[in-house]
């Protein structure tokens, strides 16, 4: 797994700084390890193979969504419709799988449709923001309302179950290992391949200085649209993980996840202004949110205080993430 950062010159002195520059997700990794240790201290059981697998399969959707968000943030944009895209793909694949009988072919066909749907949502966002030149925050909020409307049209009320084949596979084991580990490995491979593509470098160049990128001859509008398309793709993957975890369709399920995905990107050490991002950091950022939530639970916080303590902890980690990230970039 390589961080998607462009090589920056001049080369700086100091071992730690060099390390941070090569692996900008290190602060996020330290936070994750610390949270794991705290979880273990409060409840040794929480570090068991079983609970870690459970944590991973629950938060895999948020991990995917955070990575989706990272690609648009790279180009200095933001996507407030990522959660709505997730909801739309979630209900669409559940309805399609049910309609096609719930067999193996139905599952694969529905997932292909889901990927195309996610890409389409991403391209719509890209056109609206990059080609029509609307402001990303408000424009993607408007598209999120539109996508939610489509999701409600596909499935007016939550509750249609996904076929057993789908969620049994996601929550089950393959060759003795939990299936979610294969998902993680596939994700790592995918991220590695993407980090080698020209597109990621182009996204970062656009995010770093749009005008300069344009003057270098980059097709800025096209690059930004591709960034949104990538975001749509990973939102669809997030929808698959969510469907595997919840085993049902819900047209409003993703709404609350959008802002968490933005938070995860920041927690991972990426700059929201663009030009400096790390997908591995975003993965760790999403895990941080999951670990904070489980830590607050295992600490024995009274139930009515849990949300408050979670909110406070995430605010503090967010601030730490911003400060550490700035240290690295300075």
């Amino acid at each position: 797994m390589t961080p998607t950062t462009i090589e920056t010159r001049p080369i700086r002195s100091g071992g730690l700084k060099l390390w941070l520059e090569r692996y900008p997700f290190l602060p996020a990794l330290i936070i994750v390890v610390a949270l794991l240790a705290l979880n273990g201290a409060f409840s040794p059981n929480s570090l068991s193979y079983r609970s870690l697998t459970g944590l991973l399969s629950t938060y895999m959707a948020l991990i995917m969504l955070a990575i989706a968000q990272t690609y648009v943030v790279s180009a200095g944009d933001i996507d407030l419709s990522a959660g709505a895209t997730l909801s739309l793909v979630n209900v669409a694949i559940v309805v399609l799988m049910e309609k096609w009988g719930g067999g193996g072919a139905a599952v694969i066909g529905a997932m292909l449709c889901g990927i195309l749907l996610g890409l389409a949502c991403g391209v719509i966002n890209g056109i609206v923001v990059a080609a029509l030149r609307l402001q990303a925050i408000v424009a993607t909020f408007a598209t999120s309302i539109f996508f939610t409307g489509v999701a409600l049209y596909v499935m007016p009320v939550a509750g249609t179950p996904a076929p057993a084949l789908f969620w049994r596979t996601y929550g089950g084991r393959l060759l003795g290992l939990p299936f979610v580990f294969y998902v993680l490995a596939a994700l790592a491979l995918l991220l590695f391949l993407f980090s080698r593509t020209r597109l990621v470098t182009q996204l970062l160049a656009v995010g770093d200085d749009q005008q300069a990128a344009y003057q270098t001859g980059l097709p800025v509008v096209l690059v930004r649209i591709k960034g949104y398309a990538l975001c749509g793709l990973f939102s669809a993957l997030a929808a698959f993980c969510l469907t595997g975890d919840t085993a049902s369709g819900d047209p409003l399920v993703g709404g609350k996840m959008t802002l968490y995905s933005v938070a995860a990107v920041v927690l991972g050490g990426s700059a929201l202004a663009g030009g400096w991002t790390t997908v591995v950091g975003s993965l760790l950022g999403a895990l941080t949110i999951g670990l904070v939530n489980s830590l607050v639970f295992f600490m024995g916080t009274p139930s009515e205080w849990q949300n408050f303590v979670q909110g406070l902890a995430i605010l503090l980690v967010l601030m730490a993430g911003v400060l550490a990230g700035r240290r690295v970039r300075a």
Binding site: A139, I145, T148
Partner: peptide, 12 residues
């Protein structure tokens, strides 16, 4: 669903 679709599209 129609209301949300129209609302989103009109905002854009």
């Amino acid at each position: 669903s129609g209301r949300q679709m129209v609302f989103g599209a009109t905002l854009l």
